[in-house]
């Protein structure tokens, strides 16, 4: 698992090690069982229970719907990351994104993950999300690439990963292509996290 092999300097040692992601995965599996009882999952494709939780929370979105998600998070700094299971740099930075969610979620920060995987790869997506301990709602790209890309930001070439930072008022403030370290993400987020005015 990437979280185990990628050395990331821990600003608050001991606060969180690798254990919790396993706990989260178990929690996700439990949630899946509960979910399976509460409502019948879509078409009878058999999946491991961990996948169902993630699958149920993998919401298809157009660029316009992404904008709605960002708008709904008004008051929070939003980091939007477009990734795919086949994209190695995306996979490398993924644990840092989940860590941002764990450390900053509830502190005026929201992480929005959008998978750009092909529709026939969705089982892989849910499997990856479960393995990374993602127990919150994430999204997947819907519709034509070009509309999606330009709808998010015309500066985006379409390369993955692509990351967008919105301030508390929902204004796009930063954008980059390529992966970052955990510290790299913090550095890019700090100006907007510290900006109480926007």
């Amino acid at each position: 698992m990437a979280a185990l092999t990628t050395p990331a300097p821990e600003p608050s040692p001991g606060r969180r090690t690798t254990g919790p992601s396993a706990v989260v995965a178990i929690a996700a599996a439990l949630a899946a069982l509960v979910g399976a009882c509460a409502k019948s999952p879509d078409a009878g494709v058999a999946r491991p229970s961990g996948d169902d939780a993630a699958h149920a929370q993998l919401v298809p979105v157009t660029a316009a719907q992404v904008a709605e998600v960002v708008a709904a998070a008004r008051g929070k700094v939003v980091l939007l990351n477009v990734w795919a299971t086949w994209c190695n740099p995306c996979r490398e930075e993924f644990p840092y994104l989940v860590r941002l969610h764990r450390e900053l979620g509830g502190k005026g920060f929201e992480l929005v993950l959008v998978s750009a995987d092909f529709e026939n790869q969705l089982p892989k997506v849910t499997e990856f999300l479960a393995a990374e301990g993602v127990d919150f709602r994430t999204y997947r790209k819907l519709g034509a690439d070009s509309e999606f890309i330009d709808g998010l930001d015309p500066r985006w070439s379409g390369a993955l990963p692509a990351t967008f930072v919105y301030d508390r008022s929902g204004t796009l403030r930063d954008f980059w292509e390529g992966d970052l370290s955990y510290e790299g993400f913090l550095e890019r987020l700090e100006p907007w996290l510290n900006d109480k005015a926007s």
Partner: peptide
Amino acid sequence: ETKAIGCSIK
């Protein structure tokens, strides 16, 4: 000029 998602050049 068009765009598509693709793999980042390493």
